Amino acid sequence: MTGASAVVDVRLHAPIPDVVVVRVSGRLDDGAAAPVLVRRVDQQLGRARHVVIDLQDVQFLDWQFLELLRAAHTRAVAVGAQLHVSAEHQGVRRLLRSSGLDQLVQVCPAAEMVVAGLIGAARP
């Protein structure tokens, strides 16, 4: 394999209605890798009210990816969806905080925490 498909793996999971988890593994420091993820996220924005970008298996991402996340947040708001990010690796979480993205999107250590919170919020 060559190109972005050899660098990043993106998988989708819908644990409950209106929630899609977009799980990413690989390095998001390649100019060709991040658009693969963004395309998958954009496909889900019209299908689910909550899209969780799961970066649990990502240990490094670059500033270009942060800008793509910021733009994805803007598109989510435009269609009435909410973007969430889960990141376990401290370096990734630190970068999300220092860029200010944690002020735009909910950042949790694990996608399961986001889903549990959404299930709890939906209960009467």
Rank of each mutant, 00 (worst) to 15 (best):
A111S: 09
R75F: 13
T2F: 12
V85Y: 08
Q59P: 13
V92A: 11
D102L: 07
W63H: 12
V22P: 01
V21T: 03
L83F: 07
R40Y: 09
D54C: 12
V19A: 01
E67C: 07
G46V: 10
R97H: 15
E88I: 12
A116W: 07
V10S: 12
P15S: 11
Q43A: 14
Q82G: 02
P109L: 11
A34N: 04
A48H: 02
Q43W: 15
F65Q: 01
L68R: 07
S5Y: 13
C108P: 15
W63C: 09
Q44L: 04
Q103P: 09
H13L: 13
L96R: 09
V51Q: 06
I16W: 03
G46R: 06
V24W: 02
A110S: 07
S25L: 12
L28Y: 00
R27H: 04
G26E: 06
Q106Y: 10
L66H: 04
S25K: 12
D18S: 14
R97L: 15
L28W: 00
F65P: 03
L95K: 05
V52Y: 06
A14L: 04
R93E: 15
S5G: 11
A76D: 01
P109I: 08
V105R: 09
E67A: 10
R49F: 00
M113N: 07
D62P: 06
V58H: 02
V92W: 09
R93P: 10
L66N: 15
V51P: 01
V7T: 13
V107L: 05
Q82C: 08
L95M: 15
G3K: 05
L104Y: 09
G100T: 10
Q90L: 13
V79W: 11
W63S: 14
I53F: 03
A33T: 00
G91N: 11
D102Y: 03
V77H: 13
Q43D: 15
P109H: 06
R40L: 14
V77F: 13
D9L: 06
H73P: 08
R70E: 12
A111R: 07
A110Y: 15
V58Y: 01
V107S: 10
L104W: 08
A14Y: 14
V7R: 03
P15I: 05
L95D: 10
A111W: 08
Q106V: 10
D102E: 02
D30W: 02
V85P: 03
V36Q: 00
P17G: 07
A76G: 01
V92G: 02
M1R: 15
R123P: 00
D62Q: 06
P124K: 04
A122K: 01
D9N: 09
A81D: 00
Q82W: 05
G120F: 14
V58K: 02
Q106G: 04
A71P: 12
P17H: 00
H73R: 10
L61F: 02
Q90W: 14
G26N: 05
H50N: 03
H84A: 08
A87M: 01
